[in-house]
Simulated scan of single mutants.
Amino acid sequence: MVSLSTENLQIGYGDKTIVENLNLQINKGEITTIIGANGCGKSTILKTLARVHSAKSGIVYLDGKMIHKVPTKEIAKKMAVLPQSPEAPNGLTVYELVSFGRSPHQSGFGRLTDNDRKVIDWALEVTGLTSFSAQPVDALSGGQRQRAWIAMAIAQETDLLLLDEPTTYLDMAHQLEILQLLEKLNREQSRTIVMVIHDLNHASRFSHHMVALRSGTIVKEGTADEVMTPDVLKTVFQIDAEIVKDPRTKKPVCLCYDLIEKEQSLDKRRDMNF
């Protein structure tokens, strides 16, 4: 099973440092979610883990090897990546897109084998896209396109899946379907999954391990019970959250919340009126 970790990672763009001294261990065979406010470095960390973005300093280890020294094809056999808002060439069909997931396993002229076709058909089926396989990706709805990209990622058959906001554009039912699919892949095939996700309740429900970030720094990591607390959410999101237990899953749920800054400004205005 593939392992992934970082050592004193510093990440940024140009002169701007976004993440500094990041030491992160992705647990094998678990679902890890990264949560945090917009701009805190979640997607940048995921890109760096996937070697899409280069770190300023520090090391990403894949199976104990420095990832920048691992051949690209070897990485692609171990790690599938779904970026945020990917785009496909005009006219590319759903089947063709999903077939790209088989590229790391092909040799020679890159022709699809019977096994490749079997895996592609399976990926289309579990994402509910079998009937759309001949349609152009750019003719699909936003939610259907997102499912097509997820189908491509799982067709790659890697032990490790990195997904940046995989439920984007999906309605509530399809969000749940995709997350349950990822949960099934984790449970039945022991795939290690790392997700950036905005919905805290989904993160809590489907994670073994959560990592909460603020300004590129880990505020708290651990189980949902350890991370989904009023104090952690106050630090990470500047909100006053009410946390309860989900009666079905027994996981913590953010029932409601208020903005702390708003509350403080209201208190100031009240004081000025006296």
Score class of each variant (00 low, 15 high):
Ala37Trp: 01
Thr32Asn: 01
Gln238Pro: 07
Arg187Asn: 08
Thr6Trp: 03
Asp121His: 09
Pro86Met: 02
Asp267Ala: 15
Ile197Gly: 08
Ala224Ser: 15
Gln175Phe: 06
Pro83Cys: 04
Asp240Ala: 12
Ser43Thr: 15
Thr130Ala: 12
Gly110Trp: 12
Gln238Tyr: 13
Ser3Asp: 06
Arg117His: 09
Ile239Lys: 11
Asn27Gln: 15
Thr33Pro: 00
Val60Lys: 08
Cys256Val: 13
Gln135Leu: 14
Val219Pro: 11
Leu140Met: 12
Lys251Asn: 06
Leu163Glu: 01
Val196Ser: 07
Trp149Met: 03
Met172Cys: 08
Tyr13His: 08
Pro71Gly: 09
Ser43Arg: 10
Pro83Met: 04
Ile178Asp: 10
Glu74Pro: 09
Glu263Arg: 14
Asp231Ile: 11
Thr168Asn: 09
Gly142Ser: 11
Arg205Thr: 15
Arg205Glu: 14
Leu161Asp: 07
Ala76Trp: 06
Ser215Thr: 12
Gln175Gly: 08
Val81Leu: 15
Gln180Leu: 11
Ile45His: 04
Arg214His: 07
Glu188Tyr: 14
Val126Phe: 06
Ser43Met: 07
Cys254Tyr: 01
Ser5Arg: 11
Ser43Trp: 06
Gln25Phe: 05
Asp171Thr: 10
Leu181Gly: 05
Leu176Lys: 14
Leu163Gln: 04
Ile34Lys: 03
Lys262Leu: 13
Lys73Trp: 07
Leu46Gly: 04
Ser85Pro: 00
Thr72Trp: 07
Thr48Pro: 05
Phe274Ser: 13
Ala50Val: 04
Ala148Lys: 03
Gln189Leu: 13
Pro86Cys: 01
Thr6Tyr: 03
Ser190Val: 04
Tyr13Met: 01
Leu179Thr: 08
Ala203Thr: 00
Asn21Ile: 01
Ala76Val: 05
Thr33Asn: 13
Asn23Ser: 06
Phe100Leu: 15
Ser85Cys: 01
Arg51Leu: 10
Ala212Trp: 02
His208Met: 05
Gln25Ser: 12
Gly14Trp: 00
Arg117Phe: 01
His68Arg: 15
Tyr95Ala: 12
Lys234Pro: 07
Asp116Phe: 05
Ile239Tyr: 07
Gly128Ile: 11
Ile218Phe: 00
Cys254His: 03
Leu97Cys: 08
Trp122Gly: 12
Tyr257Val: 04
Ser99Arg: 05
Gln106Pro: 00
Gly222Phe: 10
Leu259Arg: 02
Leu4Arg: 09
Asp271Tyr: 09
Ile150Ala: 07
Leu24His: 04
Glu177Pro: 07
Ser103Met: 09
Cys40Met: 04
Ser103Glu: 06
Ser99Val: 01
Asn8Tyr: 00
Asp271Lys: 15
Arg145Thr: 00
Tyr169Ser: 12
Ile178Lys: 12
Ala37Leu: 06
Leu182Tyr: 09
Glu157Val: 08
Val211Met: 10
Asp138Tyr: 03
Val253Ser: 04
Ser99His: 03
Val137Leu: 12
Asn23Gln: 02
His209Asn: 09
Leu62Ser: 10
Ile34Cys: 03
Leu179Cys: 09
Asn23Asp: 11
His53Gly: 03
Thr127His: 03
Glu177Arg: 15
Ala241Tyr: 00
Asp231Met: 13
Val244Leu: 14
Val236Leu: 02
Gly142Gln: 11
